[in-house]
Write a protein that binds this DNA or RNA. Structure first.
Lengths: 262, 262
DNA sequence: GATGTTCACTGGTCTGACCAGTAGACTTTT
DNA sequence: AAAAGTCTACTGGTCAGACCAGTGAACATC
């Protein structure tokens, strides 16, 4: 992402100068707090000093301290509660900010549905490959339970089916042993659903779709049970493609299909 | 994630009440501005009224307006410049916010090197598969230029080689046509390097490693040129595994290897 | 021991002020 | 008349001080 492509000097007058920008005081405060958290000096659950104390420590006005706190709060780093004598709380990491930014991009057409689905296919198939090899018996049991729930939900309508489906994919993501993939998969799944869940739930042949999807999931689970990573990955790719491809404009399907063949 | 799964009432006293939270004034302002942008009433490049005008329009104090502007600014929605008589500018959508949140996630503790490398393998191989199918001639030329630079940099030491390597992978990520993968790959690559770049740069056989890596990259590029997605994906997986696996404890290599076989 | 009350302090908001930076209008110079 | 410098009205960045409502813990009450 446009992270200064480090272009070499081109003319004699080019000293590698970069555009400058005045750094505002509140930004310094944000930096300092974030660094302290990064270094582990401030841990989730701990409290920051009160605003008035921070004013003294940073040597600025309260307005400036507050602007910094608002930014930190909007990034999900801290939370202020009016009147709390313990001061602002340092929050544990959550994926809320990631989801927010991804939604923003998706809404702004910076992220098309096809891009999201390609990402979903990538994440899910990788999670399945990993889960097939690394899953514990307990995790396998969770997946069994989730798919059982799906079976029951086919009759119950889209919402309950969607919930069971969610649980199944979450179980697999957990079993992959990869937090990054798990979180990203969750966020992307969320974003995809927020884009097209109405379309799906209003499909005429909803029940048939659910049944087919269920079959695919059973196939995936069988591969995981057998410890066959590549097969689990393949099956999940086809499952997602089969379920979602109709919502992607034909011209953009090439990307999805590029992940299928082998 | 965890977006309140809408659990139904369970006991007679449960009226579906939810925890309440006082909505602060500055949040209302942020909402209004974001909605106006979402509705297309405010477009990138346009200007917001000056802070003092906003004070009048929203009927709050300047401090409150400023807190809202700071939040919007931190989310990459607007930008204020001191003294600019035109007022705060509405920015075009960028992936900057996503990158920031992603970086936060990648830095969260509990993310081991092996997890990062698994993610990197997933992202890079997918990008390669896509690039093999979707790349334009111009993008192919960029890759050629980057690999040429790598060839020259083998003699020049680790730093310059690493830069050329970066350019190569960036070119591929761009050619994949998938913003999400591009952003994630950039962040993960960055994080991995920040964890082990010293180890690599101090390796005794650094030059031999670079040569071998170069060979792998040439193989990948050949597959992309030939339009062979699966082969490009496979080659990049082996390239990464070969280059980084020694830094991963043996017990954790199973995950990496699960992505290799087929 | 469980209740209700008090109180010191917190965050949320407002007012009004000063300074430095900016763009565009204006004046001067060529 | 075009280029250069100057001026100026306004902007955002920061500060100081004030008021109110919300909170929790210590306290007093039952």
């Amino acid at each position: 992402m446009a992270e200064t492509p480090t272009s070499p000097p081109t003319s004699s007058g080019d000293h590698g100068f970069e555009p400058v920008r005045s750094v505002r005081l509140y930004e310094r405060i944000v930096e300092q707090v974030e660094e302290a958290i990064g270094r582990g000096e401030l841990r989730p659950g701990q409290r920051l000093p009160s605003e008035r104390d921070l004013v003294v420590q940073f040597g600025t006005s309260r307005a400036t301290v507050r602007e910094a706190l608002r930014v930190l709060e909007s990034n999900g780093v801290v939370r202020s509660r009016a009147g709390d004598p313990n001061g602002p709380e340092i929050l544990p990491f959550t994926t809320g900010g990631l989801t927010k930014q991804m939604r923003r991009l998706a809404r702004a057409d910076g992220l098309s549905l096809s891009q999201l689905l390609v990402s979903r296919m990538m994440l899910d198939s990788t999670a399945n490959r990993l889960a097939a090899v690394l899953r514990t018996p307990a995790q396998l049991a969770e997946m069994d339970a989730a798919i059982e729930q799906m079976r029951a939900a086919v009759e119950g309508g889209y919402t309950s089916f969607s919930e069971a489906d969610f649980a199944f994919h979450e179980a697999i993501a957990r079993a992959s042993g990869n937090t990054l993939i798990q979180v990203c998969n969750g966020v992307v799944r969320d974003t995809v659903l927020s884009l097209i869940s109405d379309k799906i739930s209003h499909a005429r042949n909803a029940q048939a779709l659910m049944k087919r999807s269920l079959g695919h999931h059973e196939q995936v689970l069988a591969a995981i049970r057998a410890g066959d990573g590549p097969e689990a990955g393949r099956a999940s790719l086809h499952s997602l493609y089969d379920y979602y491809a109709t919502y992607v404009p034909k011209a953009e399907r090439a990307a999805l299909e590029a992940l299928l063949d082998d």
